[in-house]
Every structure is written in C-alpha cells, then in structure tokens.
C-alpha cells in the first residue's frame, strides 16, 4: 500500500466503505431470515402434506401479481441507482417515486390478503378456526406465513421510508447523489428484500399446486 492518509478522504474510498457496511448489514439480514427459513424447513419436512393443503388457502393470483409488482420495483430501483451514478436528478426522482409507488402497491395487495385471512379466521391464535383434517399443523403453517411475510412487509415499510427520505433530500437539493453511495446502498437493501420474497412466494403460495 502506497497511498497516503488522503486515501481515507477520497470519494471512491468512501463509497466502497459505505457499501461494504451495507453488505455486512445484509449478511445479518440473511441470517435473520435464515432462522425462520430453517424453522419452516423443519416443519415442512415434518408435515409436508398438511403444508401443501394449507397453502391452497392462499391466493396464488394475488401472490403472483405481487411478485411481478415487486420485481418491477427492483427494476425501477436499478434505474434509480444508474441515474444517481450519472448525476441525473430528474430521472432519479422519477424512479425513486416509481419504486415507492410499486412498494406501496405491494403492501396494499398484501394487506387485502391479510384481511381475507382475517375474515376466514385463518390468523393463528385464539380465534383460529379451520374445518379441515389437521387444525393443529395448519395453524403452524399460518404462523410461519404471518411471521415471515409480516417481517418481510416491515422490511418493505422501512425501505419505503428510506426511499422517501432520499427522494425528499434529492428534491430539496440537499444531497448530491453522485457524490455518495446512499442510493446505491438503499438499492442493495431493496433488492435483498425482493430476493427474500422470491423465496417466500414459492414456499408459501406454490407448494400446494402440485396435487
């Protein structure tokens, strides 16, 4: 290493440092969801048929639409990152706005689904009621469904909050997005949340399709 202390000040160094921080943070997120996926795997291998049966109570159409919405939001996020790197303010604002809007659409659809489950009394706990064969383990399936999609939704809400702050700062010209890695780091986080959904979708919605 031949650089002087000045290297700690320069831009690409700052960018790399921030992004490394984001990657390490995402590592903790992988382990966080990993614990839940492990639990899911344990129970699904224990009760494979019941999980498939319970899965049929989810609305595959809404789930598919939501997957498409979320994947599209990752696309707009990627465009936002590209605009930020090129220092194009207007496109950046538009893409941030689109990403936020798509995120809100996702949450809207998700909450209708939750509402359906509430009406059908499929929310675990005291009011759970299910007329099929195996009430016990079906409740387990829905416990995982609500905890995992719920935590995913909380991550979405946090992401939308960060995007909104970024958009506000860019709009008021308090932030020059080409000079730091804020948009890029947020983008990594957004894609991560998207990837989590890519796993959640088949594990909850699609496992019942086969039979």
């Amino acid at each position: 290493m031949t650089e002087t202390s000045a290297h700690q000040e320069d831009m690409s160094w700052q960018r790399e440092t921030s992004l490394l921080g984001v990657w390490v943070f995402l590592l903790t997120e992988v382990l966080f969801f990993g614990g839940l996926f492990t639990g899911y795997a344990v129970y699904r291998s224990g009760y494979p048929d019941i999980f498939s049966e319970a899965s049929r109570h989810l609305n595959v159409l809404l789930g598919t639409v939501n997957t498409a919405v979320l994947l599209t939001s990752s696309l707009t996020m990627a465009f936002a990152v590209a605009s930020a790197q090129e220092g194009k303010r207007r496109p950046l604002l538009i893409y941030l706005f689109l990403t936020i809007a798509l995120g809100l659409v996702f949450l809207g659809i998700k909450s209708t689904e939750y509402h359906h489950k509430f009406v059908e009394k499929l929310i675990p706990g005291a009011h759970f009621s299910y007329s099929g064969l195996s009430t016990r383990e079906v409740q387990l399936f829905f416990s995982f469904y609500f905890v995992m999609t719920g935590l995913h939704a909380l991550h979405m809400i946090a992401g939308i909050g960060v995007l909104a702050v970024l958009a506000f700062l860019v709009w008021r010209k308090k932030l020059d997005p080409s000079r730091n890695a804020l948009v890029e780091g947020t983008g990594l986080y957004w894609h991560f949340v998207d990837v989590v959904w890519i796993f959640l979708f088949p594990l909850f919605y699609l496992i019942g399709l086969r039979a």
Binding site: V42, Y43, G46, P124, A126, R136, L140, S143, F146, V147
Partner: peptide
Amino acid sequence: FGIGIFNPAIGGDPLL
C-alpha cells in the same frame, strides 16, 4: 399474539 411456532399444542417443536 398467540402465534405459536414452538407450541407443541399445534404441532410445534419447543426444541427448535
């Protein structure tokens, strides 16, 4: 919330 992933009464495994 009574969402019992470890609850043996609904087939959960406390050992998990």
